Amino acid sequence: MLLAVDVGNTNVVFALFGMDGQDKPVIRARWRIATDPRRTGDEYAVWLVQLLSIEGFVREDVTQVIISTVVPRALHNLQVLSSKYFGVEALVAGQGIAEWGMPIDVDEPGSLGADRAVNAIAAHAKYPGDLIVVDFGTATTFDVVDFSGAYKGGIIAPGINLSLDALVNNTAKLPRIAIEEPRSNSVIGRNTQDQMLIGVFWGYVAMMEGLIARLRAEIGRPAKVIATGGLAILFDQHVRIFDAVDTDLTLEGLALLAGRKNAS
């Protein structure tokens, strides 16, 4: 089985893939832990082996590991986890036999984040035509993938939680609130908390609508919008921005990269 590891700025997601009846990778289990570059391979193992056991798996079930990371300092300890506790050399997304395998048509191809590249690969494999991939993470990213699968560039915006943290941390009297669905569609708040939620939620919607409209106009061809990340579902419940919500896009992209090695 494949263990896919997606290291983000906030969380590390582990997903265990098996095969379905048509030899397609499917997620059998997943776990999440806060990102900490200081966490050792041994610490990961204590946590992860117990979770495998709870789900009915053992270490020996893991025969392949692939890692995608936007936190370079976290990579070494995860490679130690793979070699010491699973007995396999981890593939690193974007390196060696796990290279992207797609044109990266930007000024600085080496600066493209691993998560964005993996999203682009998975989105092109699953959805035809020109694409705009929106990923709700610590930052919110908009990535353009053309009909041939080439990565053409995109946009990086502050994540919604970063925006909220900046608002709360830099004001004396505003309370900390959770991102949640608005109580109504009204944009006239009657109290401080509602006004903050309106500003963050509907302000973010307006930002997304405006940027997506500009991207589509610049692409010049019909483009589907694919959303991923935890907050995609929340926004999709209230606005008609996305053509598809695919919360497992990054993990599925890692499985595709790992599958290339198996096919070679």
Rank of each mutant, 00 (worst) to 15 (best):
V5W: 08
D6K: 10
D6T: 04
D6P: 02
V7Q: 10
G8H: 03
N9I: 08
N9V: 09
T10Y: 06
T10E: 03
T10M: 01
V12L: 06
V13C: 13
V13G: 01
V13L: 12
F14A: 05
F14C: 09
F14R: 05
A15W: 09
L16V: 15
L16M: 13
L16H: 15
L16D: 02
F17I: 03
M19R: 14
M19P: 00
D20Q: 00
D20E: 01
D20C: 01
G21A: 08
G21R: 05
Q22K: 15
D23I: 04
D23G: 05
P25S: 07
P25D: 11
P25Q: 06
R28E: 15
R28Y: 01
A29F: 13
A29H: 14
R30M: 10
W31T: 00
W31E: 08
R32N: 09
I33W: 07
I33G: 10
A34L: 14
T35S: 14
D36W: 08
P37R: 11
G41F: 05
G41N: 00
G41I: 05
D42E: 11
D42Y: 03
E43T: 02
E43V: 03
E43P: 03
Y44N: 13
Y44R: 06
Y44A: 01
A45L: 08
V46C: 00
L48P: 01
L48A: 08
V49W: 04
V49I: 11
L51Q: 14
L51R: 15
L51A: 11
L51F: 11
L52S: 05
S53I: 00
S53M: 06
I54G: 05
I54P: 00
I54H: 11
I54D: 13
E55I: 02
E55W: 14
G56K: 09
G56N: 04
F57R: 09
V58K: 14
V58G: 13
R59F: 02
E60V: 10
E60D: 15
V62Y: 03
V62D: 00
V62F: 04
T63E: 12
V65W: 01
V65H: 03
I66R: 08
I66E: 12
I67W: 07
I67C: 01
I67M: 08
S68L: 04
S68F: 01
S68D: 09
S68T: 12
V70N: 04
V70F: 01
V70I: 06
V70C: 02
P72V: 02
P72H: 09
P72S: 12
R73T: 10
R73N: 12
L75S: 13
H76P: 00
H76D: 12
H76V: 09
N77Y: 12
N77E: 14
N77C: 07
N77L: 04
V80F: 08
V80C: 02
L81H: 11
S82Q: 02
S82K: 09
S83P: 01
S83G: 06
K84Q: 15
K84Y: 06
Y85Q: 03
G87I: 11
G87R: 02
G87S: 10
V88Y: 03
V88R: 05
V88S: 05
E89I: 14
A90L: 06
A90F: 09
L91Y: 06
L91G: 15
